[in-house]
Amino acid sequence: MIWIALIAAACVVRFEYVKLYRRKQFKDLSISACLLGFAMTLFILRSAGVPIPDPLDWISAVYKPASKIILSALS
């Protein structure tokens, strides 16, 4: 999986970023590069076996109390 990420990243740098650099759209370039760096970090962490936090757990933690009250009223 890490290879796929590397190939995708290489393609986007070669084809997209060169174009953005020539058009001097440095803001777009920097935002996209930050996200790409974040994505690569996630891929590296994943392939190193580091557990990545699950956003659904956070949502569950927030909505669990409300959900319990409403669903028990409906059963």
Binding site: A5, A8, V12, D28, L29, S32, L36, M40, F43
Partner: peptide
């Protein structure tokens, strides 16, 4: 420019 990073 966001497509590939966000897809990953």
């Amino acid at each position: 420019p966001l497509i590939v990073p966000c897809a990953m």
